[in-house]
């Protein structure tokens, strides 16, 4: 695994409150990775967890669960991921 940005096609599996020290990002969103578009992901890793401010606002849809997005993780991976994000619809 490198520290290069990682871009994946991923489906939102669920979102729940994840109390943590980052008070601006208290939602944990679980993703199923459908495809690694750019960058590297550990072999066998099929899911990612990311912290967001608001599932509906960050994913630009009132009901993101079950939908697939193109997601770029700009910073080195953490567990859960708490770095910069770019989320776009899977066109």
């Amino acid at each position: 695994m490198t520290d290069d940005p990682l871009t994946v096609r991923a489906t939102v599996l669920g979102a729940s409150v994840f109390p943590n020290a980052d008070r601006q990002r208290l939602w944990l969103v679980r993703l199923r990775v459908e495809e690694v578009i750019e960058g590297e992901l550990s072999a066998g890793q099929e899911e990612l967890s990311i912290l967001v401010h608001s599932p509906s606002r960050d994913f630009r849809t009132a009901e993101p669960v079950g939908e697939t997005f193109r997601i770029t993780l700009k910073d080195p991976l953490t567990d859960p991921y708490a770095g910069g994000l770019k989320i776009a619809r899977d066109e």
Partner: peptide, 8 residues
């Protein structure tokens, strides 16, 4: 070596 964001 895994960077982890801990839950409260």
């Amino acid at each position: 070596g895994v960077v982890t964001v801990k839950a409260v």
